[in-house]
Amino acid sequence: MLIYNAEIHTMDSRGSIENGWLEVEDGKIKALGEGSPAAVPEDSIDACGGLLLPGFIDAHTHLGIIEDGLDFEGDDCNESTDPFTPQMRAIDGINPFDRCFEEARMRGITAAASSPGSANACGGEIAAIKTYGRRIDDMLIRNCGIKFALGENPKNVYNGREETPVTRMAITALIREGLYKARRYVHDMDSYYSDSENYDPPEYDIKCEALMPLLDRKIKAFFHCHRADDICTAMRISKEFNLDPVIIHGTEGYKIADILAEENIPVICGPLMCDRCKPEMRGLELKNASVLHESGVKTAICTDHTVIPIQYLPLSAQAAVKGGLSLDDAIMTITAYPAEILGISDSTGTISEGKDADLQLYAKGCNPLDLMSEPLLVMIDGNVCRREI
């Protein structure tokens, strides 16, 4: 398939191609260029000067793991019977038939990170997925990290039961204990593999096994935290165990934006269009994403679906524009930047040869973040999910 006569925003170093064309083959972007293509096959799409973008990416959601229209029956987000559960995998709780997947792709959202919740000090493994498909295994891009949570959520869940953790100290101690055990487990495994005659393998521990890729920096540590002091705690833990950290929410990130920039730690901001529903969110400001970006922090914007329905991801980015972010930078926070933060930029997030054909097309002159905007065309892995042209 060929899309031509398009204003292509690649969202990479090449910037925009004013009058361009793009060829899709076998679910990938085969080629793109400027001007008119050499030939126009029958199945080609005339973009009529419209805006061609990579699909939007929501860097933090609970898509499919908290199902729409259901209560406990469809909520598989928090295994809150144990405050430390790195062995839980979001992919095992996601229902791809949840109606919100369709709502996402109809608004041009082609990928999302679906995460365990924040009831536990450690909630489990985050899955970066496409929003098109019937079997989650086929939709998986990669398991991109382990979810940790600092602050009020674990405190509130376990305080009601009079179980640990009920303080920030205890939350951090649980995380530290789990990571230390995993580090020792790795050491014992290495000793066994290097000298099996003199060392026995450690007894199998599923929690330690789940944390091994984290300690090897093959996946990232995603820390749910709102307050600036909790963000600093995440930094402290990451330094102790040489983790590759990402801050989720980062509501008070603007208070320490210079520190985050110095430490080169990315932030996934959101939700933005919500009330200050708990004490640790009383510092919520629309300027957060703008301040972080201007300070040199790699910043993505999220909905935290189901907190904000995922189809309002572009509107959330527009809210950040109201807070001071430029329109072009706001689009980057829901395309290229989340792909980089999630570790999936080799396949999606920008328009370039060899990447997945995750694309969306808007009418000429349209602001893709506007509430009333709708894509004329949405493709995921080359599959046409929506076509109005």
Results as ranks from 00 to 15, higher is better:
Gly283Phe: 13
Ser194Lys: 08
Leu284Arg: 15
Ala47Thr: 03
Asp76Ser: 11
Met332Asn: 02
Ile94Asp: 07
Ala39Phe: 05
Met273Asp: 12
Thr172Phe: 03
Ala257Gln: 05
Glu79Ser: 14
Gly382Leu: 00
Tyr4Gln: 00
Pro266Asn: 12
Leu32Ala: 01
Leu342Tyr: 01
Lys207Ser: 15
Gly55Arg: 04
Cys366Ala: 14
Asp328Phe: 09
Arg387His: 11
Gln360Ile: 14
Ser316Leu: 10
Arg227Lys: 15
Ser295Thr: 05
Cys144Asn: 13
Asp26Cys: 11
Asp138Tyr: 03
Ala38Ile: 01
Ala339Ser: 10
Met139His: 04
Glu152His: 10
Ile351Val: 12
Ile247Cys: 14
Glu285Pro: 00
Asp82Asn: 14
Met11Pro: 02
Gly151Phe: 07
Leu325Gly: 09
Ile389Cys: 09
Ile3Ala: 05
Gly33Lys: 11
Leu342Asn: 00
Asp58Thr: 02
Tyr180Asn: 12
Gln318Pro: 05
Cys274Val: 15
Ile268His: 04
Arg142Thr: 15
Glu177Thr: 15
Asp12Ser: 06
Arg135Asn: 13
Leu342His: 01
Thr167Arg: 02
Gln318Ile: 00
His226Trp: 04
Glu263Gly: 00
Pro83Thr: 12
Gly354Ser: 04
Pro245Phe: 10
Leu292Cys: 10
Ile389His: 01
Thr167Ile: 05
Glu42Ser: 13
Phe72Trp: 06
Val378Ser: 00
Ala121Asp: 05
Leu140Lys: 12
Leu215Glu: 10
Ala38Asn: 08
Asn153Pro: 09
Ile91Phe: 12
Thr81Arg: 12
Ser373Asp: 02
